[in-house]
Design a protein around this nucleic acid. Structure first.
Length: 716
DNA sequence: TATCCATTAACG
DNA sequence: TATGCGTTAATGGATA
């Protein structure tokens, strides 16, 4: 990359000299600098690049250190001229390139009143995600990878300036707007230079592939408008309700802790005495020894009669009683395995004793004498989780009673949305409805939720290509029961829910047991884990896997075809052409003729680093992961495309309905809809989900039914 | 003191 | 010798 021209505009005369050049640009990269990341944040400057060798930055507001606020650098007339100049350039035609367009489009709207989204033609973040699904997808990272090794230089300069001006520059809070305007402007100008440069590098890769171009035109780009809606609509939250919850749960956590301390006080004391005795010297010269001698102890005499005294002396010297921090895994382990002396249940990757809820759950069942305190531990953890991850996050993150969560179209490798900040909408507690109760529809509106019924099993049946599985849904059978019946050639049980000998009724546990098998095995689960999950012997687990694959030869064939394609192409495609890369499988095959991830074969044959990985074991792990990914991807990703297509169609077909998409949770779409439009919007979204261009490609029928409510708990 | 890593837990 | 897939957030503890 040759050194580009960068200019920070400081006069209207200079700005007007650029008019023709910018006006005539066929494509124009745009970026906004803002005073923050909130919904009400505003632009402090805009940069443009008509090519990858020029960037101009136009300040709208500059930071004044003395008064610690942003002021316009322009006279009133000049300010007006500059703003209308920007507006004219932005709205000229659909020619804008951005990086993370929904953000900049929103800022242009709130700061300059421009409905800017329609003028964007490309988003280099989406382009990159389409040609390479692996993160990072951030501008600086990509510029470093594709354009220049010094892509972070402008940011480093800006950072120094921000700090010099008394601003914060932390991972969680970067006060860009406090930087000197020249450095901020240079930084901004480089952003559009990079954006343009990335477009030049990456767009040809999409254009060169008929499949990728189709994916772009039919899913990736139209979905950007849905992302914009998701990120600008916002969700009403009941603040007084959440404040009440905070008070209640804080109180609960405190009283649980009091109760726990009371229950374990004696045992903790015994434990403390033992550890003091183990760690302390008791001689006539030691501190503890001398102290005991004043109470009649003599050196060498047993300590049994002096335990209480030892504890008292120890506590006096420490000045405090041992306090457990129940958020600390180390403390939890001490409590469970040292104080209560319960048996350890395995270790973490780093060799520490595991203290998960699953471990404690197991102990509850097996050691009734400790079950009370264990149950309190579990109860406390749950309450604490709800309090800090949801209740406090809502209270800290809302803007005037609304939460504007950021949905990211590039947040997953397979085309699902991710959701983050200030809270993640996609992991709100399902069974504990207290949180969802606080997410409400505005007055005069309702929330409507539609989720695809058993989406993953259906798509799995379709993709794996086994007719017996595909028939499950057209024949009204139960997926898991059907698998059990086929695995064991059972005539005793039926997979038909209305049959008198329905497996789900007569032998619930047998149906339950097929659950981890059905999708786990295709995605690469080994007998070891299946055995653990089902609490059976490894041999039994192996037999189950064999029976499963024998019952569905087409599934086994699909699993193998996936391997062959992945190692041959270096990627696998979903039915809509979305790709997942499998470079290690390809390298192993191309360079060493290794056909499948086998750690012994890899250890034997691979003697040099592969894709930068040296350790043969790590190479195996990576290749094995790629194979599991390749299989899972075809299903998860197609499911995502189906939901995406439904949302795209809904937005295209809704006309005058007052109905917006506020959230999506992988197989679910949530709308806020004006009362009188509830029926129409429900019907429309249902149709968009069950009948669209993608469902037509799929033989398995799709089902989605609306649930309406005043809050998220009702609309479920 | 900020940042990074490991662990845990919430969801599909 | 590691052990179905895709995520985000909070916390503690080690490190720089």
């Amino acid at each position: 990359m040759t050194k580009p021209i960068v200019e920070v505009i400081t006069s209207t005369a200079r700005l007007l000299e650029y008019s023709d050049l910018i006006s005539n640009a066929k494509l124009l990269a745009v970026d906004t600098e803002t005073n923050g990341l909130r919904q009400d944040s505003i632009a402090i400057g805009v940069s443009f690049s008509p090519s990858s060798d020029l960037g101009i930055y136009i300040p709208l507001l500059v930071y004044n250190k003395e008064i610690d606020s942003l002021v316009s650098p322009w006279s009133l007339e000049a300010d007006e001229l500059v703003r209308s100049w920007i507006t004219e350039q932005v709205t000229k035609s659909q020619r804008l390139i951005g990086h993370n367009v929904p953000f900049d489009a929103r800022i242009l709207k709130t700061s300059l009143g421009i409905e800017a989204l329609q003028y964007f033609k490309y988003d280099t973040q989406l382009i990159h995600h389409t040609v390479d699904e692996n993160p990072p997808h951030g501008l600086k990272d990509l510029a470093t990878k594709y354009l220049t090794e010094e892509a972070s230089a402008p940011q480093d300069d800006l950072k120094a300036s921000v700090i010099a001006n008394g601003g914060e520059w932390k991972a969680t809070n970067k006060e860009f707007y406090k930087g000197d305007v020249l450095l901020l402007g240079t930084y901004g100008a480089y952003d559009t230079i990079y954006t343009y440069g990335l477009w030049e590098k990456l767009w040809p890769q999409i254009e060169a592939s008929v499949k990728l171009l189709k994916l772009w035109n039919e899913e990736v780009w139209p979905l950007n408008a849905v992302t914009y809606e998701l990120n600008t609509t916002g969700f009403d939250v009941d603040i007084p309700y959440f404040e009440g919850l905070k008070k209640d749960i804080t109180g609960t956590v405190e009283s649980i802790e009091d109760e726990m301390y009371a229950m374990i006080a004696d045992k903790v004391n015994e434990y403390e005495i033992d550890s003091v005795i183990a760690k302390t010297k008791f001689t006539k010269r030691s501190v503890m020894g001398k102290a005991l001698m004043q109470h009649g102890w003599e050196e060498g005499q047993p300590l049994d009669d002096y335990r209480d005294l030892i504890l008292k002396l120890f506590l006096d010297s420490k000045g405090l009683k041992r306090k457990f921090n129940f958020d600390s895994n180390d403390d939890k382990a001490v409590l469970l395995f040292d104080v209560l002396e319960l048996p350890e249940q395995g270790t973490t990757a780093k060799g520490k004793r595991q203290v998960t809820a699953a471990v404690i759950d197991k102990l509850v069942n097996e050691y009734s004498e400790s079950s009370e305190i264990l149950k309190l531990m579990l109860y406390r953890s749950k309450e604490k989780k709800v309090l800090s991850t949801y209740v406090e996050a809502v209270l800290n993150g809302h803007e005037d009673g609304r939460i504007y969560t950021s949905f990211k179209q590039t947040g997953t490798t397979g085309g699902r949305f991710s959701s983050a900040q200030p809270i993640n909408f996609q992991n709100l507690p399902r069974d504990d409805i207290r949180i969802k109760l606080g997410f409400k529809a505005p007055i005069g509106y309702k929330l409507i939720s539609l989720d695809f019924s058993s989406l993953e099993p259906r798509i799995f049946s379709e993709v794996a290509g086994d007719p017996k599985l595909q028939a499950v849904y057209s024949e009204g059978l139960d997926f898991y029961s059907k698998i059990y019946v086929d695995m064991f050639n059972s005539t005793e049980y039926s997979a038909r829910p209305d049959a008198p000998n329905y497996l789900g009724k007569l032998a619930k546990d047998k149906r339950q047991q097929t659950k981890p098998i059905a999708l786990g095995i295709p995605y690469g689960m080994q007998e070891y884990k299946l055995a653990k999950t089902l609490n059976i012997e490894v041999e039994e687990a192996k037999a189950l896997i064999d029976a499963y694959l024998a019952a569905y030869p087409d599934l086994a064939k699909w699993m193998n075809t996936t391997l062959i394609l992945a190692r041959k192409q270096g990627y696998i495609e979903s039915k809509v052409g979305r790709r997942r890369r499998t470079p290690m499988l390809k390298e192993l095959h191309d360079k060493y003729g290794i056909k499948r991830p086998d750690k012994f074969e890899i250890k034997r044959k691979v003697r040099r680093p592969l894709l930068g990985v040296e350790d043969p074991l790590k190479i195996f792990i990576r290749a094995n992961g790629e194979l599991n990914n390749a299989r899972n991807f075809q299903i998860q990703s197609l499911a995502a495309s189906l939901v995406n297509k439904a949302m795209i169609d809904f937005v295209a077909r809704r006309g005058d309905l007052d109905a917006k998409i506020v959230s999506t949770v992988h197989d679910e779409v949530i709308l806020v809809v004006k009362d009188e439009h509830v029926d129409a919007a429900s019907k429309l979204l249902k149709d968009c989900m069950e009948n669209n261009e993608l469902t037509k490609l799929i033989t398995v029928p799709m089902e989605a039914d609306p649930v309406v409510g005043n809050n998220l708990a009702e609309a479920k």
